[in-house]
Design a protein around this nucleic acid. Structure first.
Length: 820
RNA sequence: GGGCGAGUGGCGGAAUGGCAGACGCAAUGGACUCAAAAUCCAUCGGGGGCAACCCCAUGAGAGUUCGACUCUCUCCUCGCCCACCA
């Protein structure tokens, strides 16, 4: 009889053949129905591919294969985000230079990805550490500088004392470094920033138009954090100086009994001479600077601060003299770095005022005796504004004190420079001579010049000691041959920028490069880009909601404004995938519950693993990986193999005339699998295939050769190898040029065939199920009623027909008799 | 503290206003076997009953509805994200 199903053998055969025949390479220049499907850029960790990563890649692949069979020219590129702190930290840990580590991890990662059986377009693979790629990352930086969107600024920035580099706000998670988990501190450093804040409003306003997982959109909305309020000036007594605050509650201005400025606020230094307790203030300021973000916030609601004695401000609404404090509960980076404090109507101010015995007059009638009321309401004790409602009062009071209405965003500019080794050098040159002479490429950045585009890439030199220095300078700052360079303008000795750019810059534009990888003269070919992008189906982790996904949107918007791309948003559809746990816990080395894909793929085969990962839980939700569950898929594929071998090769004389029910089941399965894949409900699509096979096996004589063919096509996106083998064996037309099942067309279903001639109607009495019966489809309510009342069970529960209050019939589904 | 999501058999999960537990795992019994594995058949939420059947059950409690796992409110638990943003 037939040979046994041997996944190892058929998988290695088809893996090679698919690559050789390039069946997954679309015609990038001429494709008529482009469909770009993409999984978030992976970074090649030396441990190799994570099983969760396998699941996500495969999830994207199932969708791509489905679209390809539906007639689309599917582009599913792959590459590695190998530059950056994550890769460098690993290199540091094992004491191997990143340049030596890269070829090893790259080879291993690509080998694993081939093993998954994914239909990647390998010809377009790219790596961020490849000079052919990062020259364009540098090119982007140059354009950003030239157009004023990249700038240098001395600022209090997040510093990771373990990674010894600065970090963007998005990379500080709960006061900890996103990479290594160390508590971060604030450091005063001059750094490069991208002006993402210029795009805050558009990044926010476009969100509703995007077909993205809702939670991701909400996360971005919160991160951008729009709030409407007012800028109001509080004059300082006996001076020309005033303190400006941003407030969302100008309606509570009459209740402002003190002010707070952030310890980092430059105004504090300006007022130094007036501050009678300067020593105390100074002590507080330097202590605040040293404390980590965690310490600053972990002390939680316990407020600290120092009154600036000798400095008094005037509340512009009621002209009262009020004290000024410094306290670290006020953030320098938000608003103006100073607040007016209204203890009666703000929880933080309330806590602070209580501790420092500051009065808290009530100015909004909260309808309760409670001191603290943060809601809106009717104004009291507010002079001529008393009895006004908050909404109206906001505008009126702002106007009264000469303030201005203002929209404030929480989003800050993207800190782009890193004092590390493993990244693209920032392509800038600084000339001290030009700076003194008032020269520079941009008037607001004296002394700074971009590297001429013809000289790109600025290659990352080999630096033996690539460890971060912790001095605020990158290891490149120790390589004279790298940074010593004549000024492009005055030709005097100048200095190259030695910082590298953030990894997130590498990954913020890679999807634009993929279709144009072969083009060595430009970052992307706009004709090809506009043909293929925006990415039609993008899938990745929710943890990138405010990192990668925000940065990618920002850059795309910028390129759109520069007319380099014809679309404003990079990803039409985005779906977040779920997390895979093992034994109910996140996989981690320390817990010893990490699933190594290599072992499993070798043992069970790619088809089985692909299907198991898709079957174990809804794709978007994630679930628990259990070894025992794999057996179910192994059995299923064995049965597919056996059944196909036994029935697909029947000669025509052996064909069954076909059983009506089997045909209907096949059409129903086509509908269900088609709809489920489109919704990424892979688990239920697979269960539908299992149901169909169960039915095939129950009445094999009624199964046609054609039914088997349809079944294999439906299964093909999930199990590409076994279906290809069986298709080639029994169905493929050997003469046609390419006869892969994966290039066959997706089965259609006949609407007429999925409707049953009879339906089962459930009978309820007072909402409790009592009986059911079969009746012809779309029977009239009268027919149903007659039938229902004739049932023995119904007679038992409804002895007196006159007691029927209501008869409810939902067509083809249910009949409910309601008694009084 | 805020936001988002989730709570259904021994387990993963299905059903999103209409027969709760599809599909699969595990388990139990049986067939095959000298035996085991594999495979096949049967049982498989709880309680009652010889049985036909009946009752209870989707984290807890209320509500809306002829009818609620599904919608609304309150509470509890868990997960993820953000977190002194004025």
């Amino acid at each position: 009889m037939s040979m046994k199903y041997n996944p190892g053998k058929i998988e290695s055969k088809w893996k090679k053949l698919w690559l050789k025949k390039k069946i997954y390479e679309p015609d990038l220049k001429n494709a008529e129905r482009p469909f770009y499907t993409l999984m978030m850029f992976p970074y090649p960790s030396a441990e190799g591919l994570h099983i969760g990563g396998v699941r996500t890649f495969t999830g994207v692949d199932i969708y791509g294969r489905f679209k390809r069979m539906q007639g689309y020219d599917v582009f599913e590129p792959i590459g590695l985000d190998g530059f950056g702190i994550h890769s460098e930290n690993y290199a540091l840990k094992i004491g191997k230079h990143p340049t030596r580590l890269v070829p090893i991890t790259e080879k291993n990662f690509y080998r694993q990805l081939v093993a998954t059986g994914n239909a990647f377009s390998w010809d377009e693979a790219l790596e961020t550490y490849d000079p052919d790629y990062y020259r364009w990352t540098q090119w982007i930086f140059i354009q950003m500088f030239k157009r004023g969107l990249a700038y240098r600024k001395k600022a209090k920035v997040n510093w990771c004392p373990s990674c010894l580099t600065v970090l963007a706000d998005e990379q500080v998670v709960s006061g900890e470094c996103e990479r290594c988990g160390s508590p971060t501190i604030k450091k005063d450093l001059e750094q490069w920033f991208f002006k993402i804040t210029d795009y805050a409003e558009r990044l926010l306003n476009n969100l509703p138009k995007l077909d993205w997982s809702e939670n991701i959109k909400i996360a971005q909305e919160h991160w951008i954090g729009r709030s409407e309020g007012a800028l109001i000036k509080f004059p300082i007594l006996d001076s020309q100086i005033s303190i400006e605050v941003f407030t969302t509650r100008p309606d509570t201005l009459f209740g402002a009994t003190y002010m707070v400025v952030a310890p980092e606020h430059p105004l504090v230094e300006t007022l130094k001479n007036r501050i009678q307790n300067w020593k105390e203030a100074e002590k507080y300021i330097s202590a605040a600077a040293k404390r980590s973000e965690i310490e600053r916030t972990a002390e939680g609601k316990e407020k600290t601060g120092v009154e600036l004695k000798g400095v008094r401000a005037i509340n512009p609404a009621n002209k009262e003299e009020i004290p000024v404090y410094i306290a670290d509960y006020v953030l320098f980076g938000y608003g103006t770095g100073a607040v007016m404090a209204v203890p009666a109507h703000d929880a933080r101010d309330y806590a602070f005022a209580k501790k420092f015995n500051i009065p808290a007059p009530v100015v909004i009638d909260g309808g309760q005796e409670e001191m603290l009321y943060v809601g809106a309401g009717r104004l009291i004790n507010s002079g001529k504004f008393s009895s006004m409602q908050s909404d109206e009062a906001k505008r009126a009071i702002t106007e009264f004190v000469g303030g201005t209405l203002k929209v404030q965003y929480r989003l800050r500019d993207w800190l782009i420079s890193r004092q590390r080794y493993w990244g693209p050098p920032i392509p800038m040159i600084f000339c001290g001579v030009c700076e003194k002479a008032g020269m520079g490429e941009r008037k607001d950045a004296l002394g700074w010049y971009t590297v001429p585009e013809s000289e790109l890439p600025v290659r990352l030199p080999f630096v033996k000691d690539f460890r971060p220095k912790g001095t605020g300078e990158s290891p490149l700052a120790s390589v004279k041959s790298f940074y010593e360079i004549p000024c492009p303008k005055c030709h005097k000795p100048a200095r190259r920028e030695t910082d590298v750019s953030d990894t997130f810059l590498d990954s913020a534009w890679y999807f634009l490069r993929y279709p144009s990888v072969s083009d060595s003269r430009q970052a992307w070919n706009s004709g090809i880009t506009n043909r293929w992008l925006p990415v039609h189906m993008y899938i990745g982790g929710a943890e990138h909601a405010v990192l990668h996904l925000l940065y990618a949107r920002f850059l795309t918007m910028v390129f759109y404004d520069w007319k380099l791309v014809g679309f404003e948003e990079p990803f039409t559809t985005f779906r977040a995938h779920g997390l895979i746990t093992k034994g109910g816990a996140k996989m981690s080395k320390s817990k010893g519950n990490v699933v190594n894909p290599d072992d499993y793929f070798k043992r069970y085969g790619a088809d089985t693993m692909r299907m198991y990962l898709a079957f174990l839980a809804p794709f978007a939700e994630g679930g628990d990986f259990q070894d025992s569950g794999i057996a179910g898929i192994t059995r299923f594929l064995n049965r597919v193999w056996e059944f196909s071998n036994a029935h697909a090769k029947k000669t025509s004389s052996e064909f069954s005339p076909g059983d009506e029910k089997v045909i209907k089941s096949v059409h129903k399965a086509v509908k269900k699998v088609t709809e489920d894949i489109a919704e990424l409900h892979y688990n239920t699509a697979i269960s539908a295939l299992m149901v169909l096979l169960n039915e095939f096996e129950a009445k094999p004589a009624a199964v046609n050769r054609e039914d088997v063919g349809i079944f294999l096509k439906l299964l093909a996106p999930f199990a590409p190898f076994i279906t290809e083998e069986l298709w080639q064996k029994f169905f493929a037309d050997k003469k046609s040029r390419s006869h892969s099942i994966h290039l066959e067309s997706w089965p259609a279903f006949d609407k007429k065939l999925i409707v049953d001639e009879t339906v089962v109607v459930v009978v309820q009495v007072n909402g409790v199920m009592r009986d059911k019966f079969e009746i012809k489809n779309d029977a009239s309510e009268e027919e149903v009623r007659t039938k229902v009342l004739s049932l023995e069970k119904v007679k038992h529960y409804v002895p007196d027909v006159s007691k029927i209050k209501k008869f409810i019939y939902i067509k083809n589904k249910i009949a409910n008799i309601v008694l009084q």
